[in-house]
Simulated scan of single mutants.
Amino acid sequence: MLRVAPIKNTLLDGATITEQLYTTPKDCEDFFESLEKPTEVKATPRSTFIRAGVLTTVLGSAYMEYGNTKVLAIVAPPRELMRSSARRMNMGVLNCYVNFAAFASGELETVPEREKHLGGMLTKALEPLVCRNEFLNFQLDVRVLILDDDGCLLSTAINCCGVALVECGISTYDIITASTACIYKNLVFVNPSAKVEELLGQHRGADSAQMEEHGLLMNASMDTFEQLAQCQQCGYMKPETFVKLLDYTLEINKSLRQLIRRVLTDRVKEQHVLDKKEQEAERQEDERLAGIIARLKEQGLHEFIQSNIKEDPYTKK
């Protein structure tokens, strides 16, 4: 992996390529040639796995694998704001916290800045989604744990948090989906890997009029209202290129939306089956207790106790 340095408000993850990274221009070219290049642009998601309700100790949780990027999201029910910090608000407060697992990043010195930046971006993306007018003077905390980062980290976190919010029963206006696309050396990379995202930073500080198009676009959308919850662009690209990448991400978002709807539907069916089993177990337990009470009334307390005493075979003389 390339060496990164904390530079605020640059790439989406809060880190970028340091200047003078390559000893010669050929080093950059060799690295680019070693990458797998797309022969055609396919606006389709990576291989995706999503699971809602992975943790039984919290009301809302979700786990998502987007290729090799792995994210876990946890949502706690809204809690009342502290008196010392509370002030009358027309909407509830949404806070997102991002943490990297110890094994998820090789550049430990950049982790705090990346966590802070990702948390802020995630909050901006989820605020238009949540019905914050339903919990006035309350705070909703969303916590994300990054287990592995292979690109599209912010968009994967947004998708995972959207599923966790629905699992927790938080009212939302729609299902949110997000995806990432970028352009480099006139090649469009849909769902770019971490290496491609890092490579985009080599043009930082150059004159945009003399450079090739390069940039990254992250788009989070809510299709029911045809609304963009967040659209983050960095780098240099022409307006027509921006529109082209936006169309690619919207197409991917539609595919992810169908997948997430299917996951949530299966989760509801699964929970319904579990509720039925729990109700049946409670009914059987009620019948057993009713039978015990009936026998107690018929036999009396002394006879009932004597009839239920069993001799221990190990102490039998």
Rank of each mutant, 00 (worst) to 15 (best):
N95I: 14
F135I: 01
L187T: 06
C152G: 08
M91I: 09
A102M: 07
L126T: 05
R88E: 15
S193Q: 03
D148H: 09
L108K: 07
L187Y: 02
C131G: 01
E115I: 11
N133G: 13
R143P: 00
D148L: 01
E107R: 09
A157K: 01
L187F: 02
A157M: 15
L108V: 09
E109G: 11
Y184P: 03
N191T: 08
E167I: 06
G169F: 10
V142H: 00
C161G: 00
V144K: 05
M91D: 09
D150K: 08
L140N: 03
L145K: 01
S171A: 15
L126C: 04
E115C: 09
G162H: 01
T110L: 04
C168N: 14
K116T: 11
S105C: 10
S193Y: 03
N90T: 13
E167C: 11
R87W: 05
V98H: 03
Y184K: 14
A178S: 15
C160D: 01
F135N: 10
G92Q: 07
V144R: 08
K195R: 14
R143N: 10
L129P: 06
S171Y: 07
L165T: 05
A102L: 14
N90H: 12
A178H: 09
G106I: 15
N159A: 13
F189E: 04
R88H: 14
V130I: 13
R88S: 15
G120W: 06
L147Y: 07
A164N: 03
A86Y: 11
K124V: 15
E134H: 10
G162A: 05
R88D: 13
F100Q: 02
A164L: 11
G162E: 03
L154A: 03
I176Q: 00
G151W: 01
C161Q: 00
K195H: 12
L118F: 05
S155K: 04
D149N: 14
Q139M: 02
S193G: 09
S179L: 10
N159Y: 12
G169D: 02
S193I: 04
V93T: 10
K116H: 04
K185I: 00
P192S: 12
V130A: 07
L147R: 00
I183E: 02
E115M: 11
A102S: 13
D141Y: 04
M121H: 13
P112T: 12
N133W: 06
S179P: 04
R88G: 12
N159C: 15
L122Y: 10
L165D: 14
P192I: 10
L94V: 08
F100A: 06
S105V: 04
R143H: 12
V98K: 02
N186D: 15
V190W: 00
M121F: 05
N133D: 13
R132N: 07
L118W: 07
D149T: 08
E107I: 06
I170Y: 09
T177C: 07
C168G: 08
L126R: 06
F189D: 06
I175D: 12
A157T: 11
P112R: 13
G151N: 03
E127P: 03
V163W: 10
S171F: 11
A178T: 08
V130Q: 03
R87Y: 12
R88M: 08
A102F: 09
G92W: 00
D148C: 11
L154V: 11
